[in-house]
Amino acid sequence: MFRFKFLAVLCLIIMMTSSAFAAEKRVNIPIGDSPVIGPNNAPITMIKFVDYQ
């Protein structure tokens, strides 16, 4: 019983930390000479990959 609880808690910890890491994963994407809307000093940069159709 103790071993089962231990495993359950361990699984829970692994799940929580892995999702936390996933949320913090950031990708650095070069802006290059792509068109930009909005100020260059804005605190948020959104890089959008579009298909208009």
Binding site: V36, I37, G38, P39, N40, A42, T45, D51, Y52, Q53
Partner: peptide
Amino acid sequence: GKIRLVVKQTPYKYRDYAYIS
């Protein structure tokens, strides 16, 4: 003033007008 939007073009090749757009 809070957002800078950078747009990258990724037209899907099997759509007729995506590339020309």
